[in-house]
Write a protein that binds this DNA or RNA. Structure first.
Length: 465
RNA sequence: GGCGGCAUGGCCAAGUGGUAAGGCAGAAGCCUGCAAAGCUUCCAUUCCCCGGUUCGAAUCCGGGUGCCGCCUCCA
């Protein structure tokens, strides 16, 4: 079986065949750095992390580009309100963004191009579009003329004629300077509100529109046609649609082969919003004492095309699942001597895991295979059948699959403080003396200090609570 | 109004025609000095509702209900 993805463009599951195997060129829409990213953003980034890790696991040579939008309306407004330079604000949030990625164990992209550092590339594309007659100017701003691109709407299945009506009632066409309310800005002429945020270019004094940055930066690092473009469903229209229009008009080539879109995260069944009080950044969750790995689990464990309902209860449940895996590994580490090597169990688990993820990243099914494996192995361990080699094979498999999910290697407490170990020894002596009152007292004491003692056949097992 | 998605046990969630994975929570048992961990058993005669197709449907078709997203530069 081959890797298959649901391509938004065709609305079908398609076998994945990169343009130049084994290379895979991947572009994912990144953050606008005007604030801390929220967990909904991270849902998308974790989906993309799984995608990239899995492609690498399957032998592809992935080159990943994620843009950073560091010039845009909200940012300019923030500059005005705080009277700080643009770069000071964006640098701060970019640093915070990377820190959050690390906490969630999201692997870094190969390149994080910033919009402000690619103005010349954007200008080039706009010039090319202008030469080909896809643009018009109005008061110094340059707009893309949608009517010049008949295929517009093919990704989102939006009907261009109906868009024209502005049926949402939220588009007041009278306010638009464009020929048509659907047209979008490639280049925005400077006005006073922009302050010192502008570039003097051949197109005049101004700044780029949002959509053009993704076209410019993706094509710069990945070429005029590349394999995969990801983003949240909300970016499908108009952002990705506009990217297609600009890029394909400029190059006359197919821009992207596979479009993958991630569904939204909701919290307690509702869209996150500050007014509902269910809007969380990663910081907010960590302050509440949630485990980063459990957050990663929750964000990853729902199929990327399903809406993910984030609740504290689910995170708690994920923490318990992680504990089960940790305990399984602790148990395997204690095994000595000869016995079953778990060859069949390991290969079955890996096969099911791969088959599941091949199928449009069916992570739930893949996790199911891992838990089946854990149960089967535990059963054999209980029966005393598993040898050291088998335990090592099982650990190796978890480590291997962990490269894909980042969920199967929770931190161990290798560094148990000596005073805790001394207490454990004391307790062992008490148990040998059949002084169970003292033994239980010590165990309770340690529990109060955050340590759990389990009496395994091989001796006491010390774990953090 | 247009486009799209979703509806499976207390919670999360697989499963696209063959008779309901898995995790968490819960109950009982085994094990244990007692626990914990682990294992075993139990926990949806049923997959939003109503029709239809079929030997057979959670899965296909028709209708309905509910929830959600997009249609302004929100992942």
């Amino acid at each position: 079986m081959a890797v298959c993805f649901f391509n938004t463009m065709s609305r079908k599951l398609e076998p994945f065949v990169p343009l130049e195997p084994p290379k895979v060129k991947l572009y994912t829409c990144g953050p606008t750095v005007y604030n801390f990213a929220h967990i909904g953003n991270f849902r998308a980034y974790i989906f993309e992390d799984l995608l990239k890790r899995y492609l690498r696991f399957r032998g592809y040579d992935v080159f990943h580009v994620m843009n950073i939008t560091d010039v845009e309306d909200k940012l300019i407004r923030t500059c005005r309100e705080t009277e700080k330079p643009l770069k000071e604000i964006t640098d701060f949030y970019i640093e915070a963004f990377f820190k959050d990625l690390d906490i969630l164990q999201i692997e870094r992209a190969d390149v994080y191009p910033r919009a402000t550092e690619h103005i010349p590339e954007m200008v080039e594309i706009i010039k090319k579009l202008r030469e080909k007659g896809h643009t018009y100017e109005h008061e110094g701003s340059i707009y893309f003329r949608l009517s010049s691109f008949p295929r517009y709407g093919k990704l989102s299945h939006m009907n261009i004629e109906e868009l024209k009506i502005g049926a949402s009632g939220r588009v007041d066409t009278d306010e638009y300077e464009m020929e048509d309310a659907r047209d979008f800005a490639l280049w925005k002429a400077w006005d006073e509100e922009d302050g010192d945020v502008f570039w003097e270019t051949e197109l005049g004094k101004g700044r780029p529109g949002w959509h053009i940055e993704c076209s410019a930066m993706s094509m710069k690092y990945l070429g005029e046609s590349f394999d995969i473009h990801c983003g949240g469903v909300d970016n499908m229209f108009p952002h990705h649609e506009n990217e297609i229009a600009q890029s394909e008009c400029a190059t006359e080539k197919t821009f992207v082969k596979y479009w993958l879109h991630c569904a939204h995260l909701v919290v307690d069944g509702k869209k996150m919003s500050k007014s509902l009080g269910n809007f969380y950044t990663l910081r907010d969750l960590l302050e509440r004492g949630l485990e980063p790995l459990a957050i990663r689990w929750v964000l990853m464990a729902t199929h990327y095309r399903q809406p993910n309902n984030f609740t504290f209860e689910t995170v708690e449940s994920a923490s318990n699942s992680i504990r089960r895996i940790r305990d399984f590994r602790l148990r395997l580490n204690e095994i000595k001597g000869g016995g079953d090597e778990l060859v069949e169990e390991s290969s079955l688990c890996e096969k099911l895991f791969v088959d599941s993820l091949d199928d449009d990243l069916n992570i739930s099914s893949a996790l199911g295979a891992v838990f089946d494996f854990i149960r089967d192995v535990n059963k054999k361990v209980d029966a005393g059948k598993v040898g050291e080699k088998g335990a090592q094979n099982a650990i190796n498999l978890l480590n291997k699959l962990n490269k894909v999910t980042g969920l199967f290697n929770p931190d161990f407490e290798e560094d148990v403080p000596t005073e805790v170990l001394e207490k454990v020894m004391q307790r062992q002596q008490a148990r040998r003396d059949k002084n169970f009152t003292l033994a239980d007292m010590i165990r309770n004491q340690l529990f109060e200090q955050g340590w759990v003692i389990e009496d395994a056949p091989q001796g006491p097992r010390v774990k953090r609570k």
